[in-house]
């Protein structure tokens, strides 16, 4: 890829209370591109997302190493006012729980319009007009009547649509979606993903989609990055990764997908558990759970291979 990336995360390391939770994570997203960041819960996906926005609560979280370049500017070097100018304006973010992520005591019109007032300097009437348009856009019918409603009066899917409207209010160039469909019903999940996909094309924005659901990624993303216990283990274009996963963890993860198994059969699971940060050895962190581990896997950390199929494994699948 010769294009300048919109977002480049370079060897990012994060510690919580001094314990490393993210180590040497690197990836990039081109303008308009969609990257899926996949892994089990606790692997550091959300920490990565919050770190990009510099929203990780400190303490306990601390970025110990690395750079986060957005549009060529290092987010680490920015002061708070400069960060605020980017947040909600050029990077929008949606979260897993639309129920708790919306402020219960303000109307949705107020919460969507707030970004427009703060970043665009819109007046009340103009903000309301634009908010109405945004609600139309995210598919909340009869939008004008909805402005004065409160989050608790909406369904889960509608709340997530409101979150999307908030994130997209200022037409950001990057949308970070942290498990946007996890808390929703299956039928609603598809609608929300469709909506994000449609708006991505309409706005020409890049999307970082964080999920534990490989099925979602397969449909939605241009590229996929797989994380395990705070490290990036494999990254490739979607078609390529799903056709031939090479890291043993990715392989195992694919086997646990419902679509990969005959209906009615119990889904396989990866035996063992993710080791706690304190119990991790020098080698590949997946080695203790890996059926293909070589002696060196436990002692030596595999290097990350170069694109297009980045991989961190000593004994990959063919």
């Amino acid at each position: 890829m010769t294009e300048t990336p919109l977002l480049a995360v370079e060897s990012l390391s994060v510690a919580m209370d001094g314990v490393p939770v993210l180590e040497d994570v690197s990836f990039s997203i081109a303008p308009g591109e969609t990257l899926g960041l996949v892994g089990e819960s606790g692997c550091g996906k959300s920490v990565t997302a919050l770190s990009i926005m510099r929203l990780l609560p400190d303490p306990p979280g601390r970025i110990t190493d690395g750079r986060i370049l957005f549009d060529g500017v290092d987010m680490m070097s920015l002061d708070l006012p400069a960060l605020r100018a980017i947040r909600g304006d050029r990077i929008g973010m949606i979260f897993q729980e639309p129920m708790t992520s919306l402020n219960p005591v303000f109307t949705i019109g107020d919460q969507i319009g707030e970004s427009l007032i703060v970043h665009r300097g819109l007046g009340g009437a103009a903000a309301r007009a634009e908010t109405t348009r945004l609600l139309d856009l995210v598919g909340i019918p009869a939008a004008r009547n909805q402005l004065n409603r409160y989050p608790h009066e909406l369904s889960g899917g509608q709340r997530q649509r409101v979150m999307i409207a908030i994130a997209l209010a200022c037409r950001p160039r990057l949308l970070i979606a942290d498990e946007p469909t996890t808390a929703l019903d299956v039928t609603v999940q598809a609608q929300i993903l469709d909506l994000i996909g449609r708006l991505r094309l309409e706005f020409g924005m890049a999307v970082l989609l964080i999920t534990h659901d490989l099925g979602v990624v397969a449909e939605f993303c241009d590229r996929v990055a797989v994380m395990y216990a705070g490290r990036l283990v494999e990254e490739a274009p979607s078609a390529r990764l799903f056709a031939g996963p090479r890291h043993r963890y990715t392989e195992a993860l694919l086997h646990t997908m419902p679509a990969a198994n005959p209906p009615g059969r119990k889904l396989p699971s990866i035996s063992g558990a993710v080791p706690a940060p304190a119990d991790r050895g020098a080698g590949c962190i997946f080695a203790p759970r890996c059926g293909f581990a070589l002696p060196r896997c436990a002692t030596e950390l595999p290097p990350l291979e170069a694109p297009p199929h980045r991989l961190r494994c000593w004994n990959p699948a063919a």
Binding site: R84, F95, E97, S101, E114, V118, M163
Partner: peptide, 17 residues
Amino acid sequence: TQDYIRTAHSKGLSTLR
């Protein structure tokens, strides 16, 4: 510590607001 405060931060609002 509520989620909606994180949302407010992600919108780029000032600490005072």
